[in-house]
Design a protein around this nucleic acid. Structure first.
Lengths: 211, 211
DNA sequence: AGAAGATCGTACTGGAGAGTACGATGACCA
DNA sequence: TGGTCATCGTACTCTCCAGTACGATCTTCT
């Protein structure tokens, strides 16, 4: 009976610590995205937190630490890609998928995260790779599995499904995403997104639909 | 005879100043790309220059100033796109263009510049836009003019040439460039580039070649 | 030659921000 | 109830770096 907390596995203390940690990370995310790594100050985070610097450092032993934690937690915004399933019309299925994809990519959070990762990839060398594996790679796997399935069903020509998946994704990014990365302000109305998606899918199917 | 320099328009003094300025900018570019804006120190630049800080500040009154100058000068690495001209085979013409494009985009300088611009777009708001106008926009204009021409010659379907141009460019960027932005190391051998380019052009022409 | 200007080196100021020290207060646990 | 642990606030140190001051030297123009 050295530690009754361990038994319950839910000391009030530990719970509060978890909560606080989460609060810190949330505030840190906000600061990092708004000002980048260099522009963010620990003091400001502490102030925003309402707590003291001492507390902050008791959770994270350095700014880098906190940044890593913020990013790690953050990758969850790439929620599992909606399941793609053939629904009677391949074109419509793909268009709908592309719309979802575009909508997600054009989210301010995703945009900001891209910016941040790219900016700090030098300072945190593994960052790019982790990020790549979490986001685009997962997507590519999911989409290419779907495409393979469609090939097997005879609705698409047999081809390199991984390559096709990348191509479709990149076609989606065309224009809108690059603009938003460069601080321009593209039209992101649902109608415009739909238009982009249809355009992309048409080009794609022209190339890969079964004869 | 108030100033004989003005007449010759080539005082040794002025010439040297130009030279020095260029030297500073060159060194600054190197530092900014290697360490980003935040990671670059004026002192280090001065040291690398061999001169003193005083001199440095006599040319550029602040770090921001120097950064702007460095970038301004730098945009020239986007050398005028090779003229695209139909040469008897549309597919081959486009493949060759795409190879050139990819080779340019995968240059370390271009990659670094992208990184820098994206990273500092918040600090220097006009940066993104200037950059966009200098690089991708010029390209798009050139390529879409060519595509329009090809439509008029009947080798391509009539369509929105600007959109087509963006699509072709973005298809090229697929995989290779994104990888290099994320710090992965894609295969950039000529053979691989050629393969990518052919693949892209085939998809493109499937969609847009005249029937 | 002599004035004007550019460069140099070095030492300084001033500000910002990461991280620490420490004593006090309160929350939780046994 | 008494001990442990988290938190708090404040004030501090340390380091880094942009930008300045200044007197000495070297170059170029007239």
């Amino acid at each position: 009976m050295t530690n009754s907390c361990a038994e319950k596995n839910l000391c009030k203390r530990d719970a509060k610590k978890e909560e606080k940690r989460a609060a810190i990370v949330a505030i840190a995310q906000q600061h990092f995205t708004e000002h980048g790594f260099g522009g963010t100050t620990m003091s400001a985070i502490a102030a925003d937190l309402g707590g003291s610097k001492t507390t902050l450092w008791s959770y994270f032993s350095s700014k880098e630490d906190l940044f890593a934690a913020a990013l790690d937690d953050w990758i969850d915004i790439f929620e599992p890609v909606r399941n793609i399933r053939y629904e009677g019309d391949l074109r419509e299925t793909l268009v709908s998928y592309c719309c979802d994809f575009l909508n997600q990519m054009l989210t301010p959070q995703v945009e900001t995260m891209f910016r941040l990762v790219i900016a700090e990839a030098k300072r945190f060398p593994e960052l790019g790779q982790i990020f790549y594996e979490q986001a685009p790679l997962r997507r590519h796997k999911a989409l290419s599995a779907f495409l393979q399935q469609e090939m097997d069903s005879g609705r698409l020509r047999q081809y390199d499904s991984v390559r096709m998946s990348s191509q479709l994704h990149h076609l989606c990014l065309y224009r809108l995403f690059m603009h938003s990365i460069w601080g321009l302000e593209p039209d992101t109305s649902p109608a415009q997104i739909r238009l982009e998606a249809e355009n992309v899918v048409d080009l794609f199917l022209n190339g890969y639909a079964a004869a």
